[in-house]
Structures are given as C-alpha cells and as structure tokens.
Amino acid sequence: MEAALQIKGLCKVFGHVPIIKNVSFDVYPGEVFGFLGPNGAGKTTTIKMVMGFLAPDKGDIIINGTNIKENYEKAMSNLGGIVENPEMYKDLTGRTNLKMYARLHDGVTDERINEVISLVGMSQRIDEKIKKYSLGMKQRIGLAQAILHKPRVLILDEPTNGLDPAGIKELRDILCHLAHNDGVAVIISSHLLSEMELMCDRVGIISNGTMLGVKPIKDLLEHANGGTVSFRFLTNDIDLSLSILNGKFSKAVTNVTSGYLDLSIPFECVPLINKKLVEGGVSIYGITQNTASLEEAFMNIIQRGGFDA
C-alpha cells in the first residue's frame, strides 16, 4: 500500500541550530499515527513544515503521491489540519469562516459544510462570532475546517486541548471513523499519552530533532519493558495471591497494595496467571492494563535514545 504521507530526510536549521535532523517516516491510509516527543523535540516544527508554514532546508514531503516541491497546490489539497490552537477570523461567524475556507478548495458544497458542522456538534452556535466561542468550541470548528474538503491526510496538533471528557470521546470516535472507515491517514501529536494509547495504531517518537523510531503501539509497550507489560490484578486476597505466585513469577510483581497487585508480564501470560490465581481460590475482581505504561515506555525510549539501545 502506498503511503498517504511520506517524509524523507527532513532537515531544518533555525539560525545555526539544527532543529530537525534527517527525519523520515511514512503514514498509511486508514491508520491513526501518534507523533510523540517531549517539549522542544521538534514535533510542531515537523508538522509546520508539512503544512507549509516553514520551508524545509533539506528533504521531501510527499502527500498522496505528490511532492510539495513539485505541485504545492495539488499536494496541499489532500491535507487538512490544525497547528497548535485553531485561530480564525474572530469578527466573523463560524459559518463565514468555514465558507471562506471552503472557497479555497474544489467541490466543497453548502451541504458538505452543514454536514461537517453537525458532525462536530456545532449546529447550534455556528452563526455566532468566533470571539464568543470557548476553546473547546474553537477546537470543534478547527476540526470542521480541517476535514471540510475530505483530505487524505489529516494532521492534528494537540487536538484534545480544551475539550471536555465527552468532547474528547466524540473526537476520538470521529477520528477513528475517518481513519478506519474512510481510509484517511490521521496524524496526532499530543502530550496526553493515555489518549494516544486509546486512539493510535502506530506511534513515532521524536527526540531532540531525531526520529527514534516508529512502532505499532502494542509492540511499543512490550518492547519498552523488554516484552512485558504492567497489568493490575484487583483482589482482596493479597497474601494468598503472593504465595501462589511465589517462585516462577515472584520477580514479575512490581507493586503490592491492599487492593491490587501490579505484575509486569508479557501479554500472553495474562490468562495463565489468571487461571492459576482462580484455581488457587483467589477472587479476581478485574484485570486492567496499566495506563501509565505508555508513559513508562515513552520515558524509557527517550532516555535510552532509541528502541534498540
């Protein structure tokens, strides 16, 4: 399958400081790609180069098969997105803003505009001026603008910023629908790792201007902990559990409290341990994968400076 977005050997220098050093990655249609990295790693700079704010010093950006150097307008017509906070013309209404943007694209009808407005849940307030909108509403209008022309590649920088939990869930549903049903390549950069974990199919990690690697999110979690993931077993019978696990799995226990045990084990071992505990007479109230684990994985990778070090 051909990549929807190809980034090849991207370099950018500000003054004399190299900010982006030979960054390359591909994003495929139908996937949600998480773009991760600590502050100042070069996430936004990379995204701004893709979106045309900054000119790359070296390297190529190919959107839906078209290099932006060769046919800028054709390449950009397949791209939609929001950089940092969505900013619009504050004295104009949401609808006017969308109409103005729609004019710059081919084939965006009034019906399409209305469809997108109801998709992002802004039908009620669309004829008010932008300056009356909350940050969350601006995010929704920003998303509406970004998907108005049905782009093949959608880039969102911190899209959950300012959204309430219900809004975040709606956004997640919209993005997953776009990726998995419409085959859009969605790229998200965020600091909220738990969100990323829920949404992304693959993640790419950038640190200090260098791309550390791209992995499916499941592999990343396992890889980071040497093929193990942290799972939480909810139970009251801590002592009994510990005695059952004593021996082969004693090393796997990472955390013990009165209500649960944290075990660092490979994915495949979860049913086995569960079976052992249940057979040993322990009441298991639930098993969850620890959400902090992506964070740990992320920190590990950043500290080690790569996947393989």
Binding site: M51, F53, A75, M76, L79, G80, P86, E87, Y101, L104
Partner: peptide, 10 residues
C-alpha cells in the same frame, strides 16, 4: 494566528 487557515489552504 488567522494566517494559519490561509497557509494550510492549497
């Protein structure tokens, strides 16, 4: 920041 929606446009 309204320049963003112009720059992003094709």
């Amino acid at each position: 920041g309204s320049i963003k929606s112009l720059i992003i446009a094709p």
